[in-house]
Every structure is written in structure tokens, then in C-alpha cells.
Amino acid sequence: MSTTPATVSGPVETSPDLLYTEEEEALRSAVRDLLTDHCDAASVLARTESDTPHDPDLWKALTEGMGLAGLLVPEPFGGQGATHREVAVVLEELGRAVAPVPYLTSAVIATEALLSCGGDTAGELLGALASGRTVAALAVPLSTAPGPVTATVRYEGGALHGRVTGVADAGAADLLLVPAADGGLYAVDTSHAEGVTVTPRTSLDRTRPLADVGFDAVPARLLTDAADRAVRRALSSGAGLLASEQLGVAEWCLTETVQHTRERHQFNRPVGSFQALKHRMAQVWLDTVGTRAAARAAADALATDRADAPLAVAVAQAYASPVAVHAAEEALQLHGGIGMTWEHPVHLYLKRAKADSIALGTAGRHREAVGDLVDLGTP
């Protein structure tokens, strides 16, 4: 009796490989070595107490030295032509070091907005961002979730007028990308344009400072008349890759807490041998492993431009935000009295985790997005 082999019609979907490649591990090693040499906890703490929270020398080493600002920029524009997977690895390491550099805002969010614009002006600006000599920020509040954005700036008489609150890293930006009420996205060179005021705000996370930006008859260049599309792409990529930064925060907190509880003794025993503490750290480990899977899935979906990328981004943010906060809270508590001191860096990680939890949409907002995307109503 003969049988005819079954045939499969249509494309066969394969599961993405979320494991790190050799190239990605090599990139991680290089970035971690650089951060070990240039971004120790004491220097980050000192900067949070100064008027210059960003570290220009570290930024120069990351960008001009390693070319990391141009990972998402195509080679014809002077970038590396890499993918979101490589950027995710960099953000994991920057999260582990709470590095005070505008990488997420400039090399990811602003870069993605420009990539959506097209045209000679956007291409020229992409080259400047890829070199690292120009820092850009998208002029929307850091709390803005992916989706439609209500512009608070208007373009009238050939100039911008209005105010945007809570813009991340605006104080370090040479270039502002401004969505306007007419539907356009405009470029403002802050080093030459008059009428731009940047007013720092008190930020929980001093390593990623916020500012209010005012525009009083500021001349600007039109990049695209489809600002909504550009901003949506920028915020979606930013939210998806923010999960990798949150993963780095959680991993540092877990590693340092395990190490501390091995070294700290009570009743002639390491405190880490107490069953109650073992259970707490084991839960953080499980949550962190889940975060890694979600963050890698989001980065891969963005890198391959899959149709389910919005869902992967929403799942990653819904999961990663509370995990990073919980890991930092456990780290502070399990470090005991030293964890409550300003000199110990654990408070930097708690502040970064708490600030990230409301950046680019809260976990609740992303859970709602998951429900909408899978056609499952949320309460």
C-alpha cells in the first residue's frame, strides 16, 4: 500500500531563536569591560549630586570609541547597520551599570523617529546621531505610551510655539524632534535656535533627568508630515528595548544580593543560607528569567519587523516593569542596614526601576494593549 506524502501549503513560520549569538556575547563582553573601567558606582553617585548628571567621557567612549550610537542606523548613513537584538544587549549592560548616558533617548527613540521620516534632512541627521557627536531627544513626555500622541506644540508663522513637559535627557540634547499639532515632525537645533528654554525638573532618577522644554517662535525644519507614524514607531521600539534595560537592572540586583547574603553572617552562618531568604531570592531569579525571555522576544520581533511586534513589546513591558521594581526592592531590603545608606548604589537601581516603570507607558497600560491586540477585553 503506497502513501502520498502530505504537503504543506503556504509559508511555514519558525519560532525565533532567542538565544544570544556569539557576536552578541562578544558585544556584551566589550561593553561590560568598558563600563567596568569608566562607570563605577562611586562616579555615578557623584554625578547624581552634581549639576551634570550625564557623563560626556563615557558617552564618547561608547559612541566614538565603539560606534554604539549608530547600531540602528544603516551603513549608507554612517551607522553600523545592526538590529534591535544588538541594541538590546547594549541596554542590558547599561542597565546593569545605571549608566548616566542618553542612549535610550538618542540612539533608540530619536533614531527610530528619524528612520521613519526619510528624505535628505533625516539622512543627514541620522549620520550626526550615529557618530555620537549629536545627541537627540524626541520632545514628548517620557511617560508617553506607544500610540497616538496629542501634540502640545503648534507650528505657526514658520516657527514653533508651545511647551512640552517631562522630556527625558532634553538638557543634553543638541537636537530636538518636535511633533506639532499640524501633524508634522520638526527638527530644532538647540545650539543655534533662539527661543528654546530647557527647565530641569526634579527627577526621581537623576541618571536620566527630565526637563520641560518651551518653544517661543523657534525656527524649525520639517522632517515629515506624518509625525504620528514616526512617533509611534519610536515609542514602540523604545518601550520594547526598555525591557532589556530593566532586565539589566534586575540581574544586577539579584547578583549583588546573592553575593552579599553569602558574605554576611549571623549566628555563625551566611544569611543567604536561611530558608526564608532563599525563597525570596529564588523568586527574583524566576522572575528575571521570565523577563529575559520577554525582552529577547520583543527585541527579536522588532529586529525582524514581525507583524506581532506590538504584542511582543506590550508583553515585555507588562512583565519587565514590576519585575525590575521588585528585584530592586528585595535588593535594598536584603542588603540590610547598608542598603539604606546613600553610599551604597542599590538606591540608584531602585530609582531607575521605579522611573522605568512609568516610562513609555505603565505596566497596566501595556496589559490593556495586550488585551486589545488579542481581542480580549481587560477589566
Rank of each mutant, 00 (worst) to 15 (best):
E343P: 11
L129G: 13
G337I: 07
H344R: 08
T165E: 15
V346T: 15
P310S: 04
T288L: 02
S244F: 03
E75G: 10
T224G: 06
L160H: 06
S50L: 01
R163W: 04
P379G: 11
P209E: 05
A180K: 14
L373Q: 03
Q283C: 00
A107L: 04
P100V: 10
D120C: 00
E330F: 09
H54Y: 11
A159I: 03
E23K: 09
S203W: 05
V140F: 13
A82G: 10
V149C: 07
L104S: 11
A243N: 07
D305A: 11
T362R: 12
G95D: 12
L45V: 07
T341N: 08
V346Q: 14
A312H: 12
G147Y: 11
P379T: 06
T190I: 02
R262E: 09
T111G: 01
A234H: 04
H192T: 01
R154Q: 10
R206L: 03
G248C: 02
G195D: 14
R233W: 07
G119S: 02
C117K: 15
P345D: 15
A327I: 07
L104Q: 13
N268W: 13
D356Q: 11
A42K: 02
R208A: 06
G157F: 15
P270N: 00
A276D: 04
V198H: 05
A168H: 05
S29M: 04
A172E: 12
E23S: 15
L125Y: 07
A159C: 08
A136H: 07
R232D: 01
P141N: 01
V325I: 03
S9K: 00
P322H: 08
P74V: 12
P148I: 13
A159K: 09
